[in-house]
């Protein structure tokens, strides 16, 4: 396992004063430590995956990963449990998530560009307002928001879950992008401006490509938030055919009667898969991509 990269040995040869250690050994030790830490950290997740393959009435019997037998019945019974239908919920969740991500990326990035790069009257005030919207706990705006969407007759539609993203209500992401864009040297747009670029061109041709890590982060976080959102769908979606995955998952729990933990864990595992997949793809594209195409 030789893990050293081309750049490192070069650095070492220049500075021989550094202790020379066996690179293979350090690599092995480093990986072993990371794996140890990961196993401890991820044990609950590993346990959940294991639990999804246990017979339902043995799930909570202990911390072990194995039960009397291995079964797939949790997946079978969970996927379409009576009037529940997870193929439907996954589709619905995808729809809501994709529309929300698109909205957030467009609305947050243009807003952030204005705040980060342009001068305009009332800028300080508007920025303070932007931050101010994050300071109020969402629990108290839930009721007025519901009244609003109810008046618009948006109940039982995805509009209350999606439309706000297109209007940049997530101040967190705007602020995040502002911070990112402000780390980019201003000489870039200055020179573009001298070349006669308009603001939209500067935004789309220079800032956007360079702010890819922020874009990727925003996309990732929006994916997670939307995919896992429970309260919004609970309030706004009644009909089961409109449900998203978290609503389907919570239906396995019944505090007053019988909970179906087997199917719950099975479907929880499945619902993790798209996010993990999206993360792996997006970090390849964005975290790695920027290092080679961006500021080099």
């Amino acid at each position: 396992m030789t893990t050293t990269t081309p750049t490192r040995p070069a650095a070492r040869t220049i500075y021989p004063t550094k202790k020379v250690t066996n690179p293979v050994l350090t690599a092995v030790i480093r990986h072993a430590l990371i794996i140890c830490f990961l196993v401890i950290m991820l044990y609950p997740v590993i346990w959940m995956v294991a639990a999804s393959f246990k017979p339902e009435n043995e799930i909570f019997n202990g911390l072990g990963l194995f039960a009397s037998r291995f079964t797939l019945e949790n997946y079978a019974s969970g996927w379409s449990a009576g009037s529940l239908n997870f193929s439907r919920y996954f589709m619905n969740s995808f729809l809501v998530t994709v529309l929300s991500i698109a909205g957030n990326l467009v609305a947050c990035s243009i807003t952030a560009y204005a705040f980060a790069r342009l001068e305009f009257p009332f800028k300080k005030f508007l920025f303070a307002l932007l931050l101010g919207t994050m300071l109020l706990p969402s629990q108290v705006t839930m009721v007025p928001q519901y009244i609003l969407f109810n008046q618009l007759e948006w109940i039982n539609t995805y509009l209350p879950l999606v439309v706000p993203h297109w209007f940049g209500v997530d101040a967190f992401f705007i602020f995040l992008m502002v911070q990112f864009i402000r780390t980019l040297p201003r000489e870039l747009d200055e020179s573009a401006r001298i070349d006669g670029c308009g603001h939209f061109r500067i935004f789309s041709r220079i800032i956007l490509p360079l702010a890819m890590p922020a874009i990727g982060t925003t996309a990732m976080f929006t994916f997670i938030n939307t995919w896992n959102d429970f309260l919004g769908p609970l309030l706004y979606l009644n009909r089961t055919e409109l449900w998203t995955v978290p609503l389907g998952l919570s239906a396995f729990l019944d505090a007053t009667s019988e909970s179906a933990f087997g199917p719950l864990f099975a479907m929880s595992v499945l619902s993790l898969a798209p996010i993990v997949g999206f993360f792996i793809v997006s970090q390849r594209l964005l975290l790695e991509g920027v290092a080679t195409t961006g500021l080099k």
Partner: peptide, 16 residues
Amino acid sequence: IAAAWWGGTSRIELTN
């Protein structure tokens, strides 16, 4: 009409 109740999978099924 709209009808609301609490419960999990089995009750949803039966009520439906």
